[in-house]
């Protein structure tokens, strides 16, 4: 995933990447990544948990807007199946 992100970014298109494998993301040098220590196969979280999935999207979009340098790995620290999620406040992203 990281190599693909690099190729796209090198072509001038910004990327934001969810990471489930921190060491790999660090080693490859991903332009912007958001790392969660969750089981493989679940980058957006659990099935049928839209608030959780949308929280990850929100966090990724925030990173896309806020990252000022390459190689940032954001770590929101969400614990697997031990968090309560609510629908993100999308208005915070509008106008940014």
């Amino acid at each position: 995933m990281g190599l693909i992100a690099r190729s796209i970014e090198a072509a001038g298109v910004p990327t934001v990447t969810i990471s489930l494998a921190k060491a790999l993301t660090e080693a490859v040098g991903v332009p912007r990544a958001i790392f969660v220590r969750w089981p493989l196969g679940h980058p957006l979280g659990e099935r049928q948990q839209p608030a959780q999935q949308r929280t990850m999207i929100f966090a990724a979009l925030r990173l896309l807007l806020e990252a000022k340098q390459p190689g940032l790995i954001a770590e929101p620290g969400y614990r697997w199946k031990r968090e309560t999620y609510t629908e993100p406040d999308w208005d915070q992203l509008i106008g940014e």
């Binding site: 992100a5 298109v13 910004p14 990447t17 969810i18 990471s19 489930l20 990724a60």
Partner: peptide
């Protein structure tokens, strides 16, 4: 495309 959103597995 203005940005790409990438998900691994």
């Amino acid at each position: 495309v203005d940005f790409a959103f990438l998900t691994p597995a």
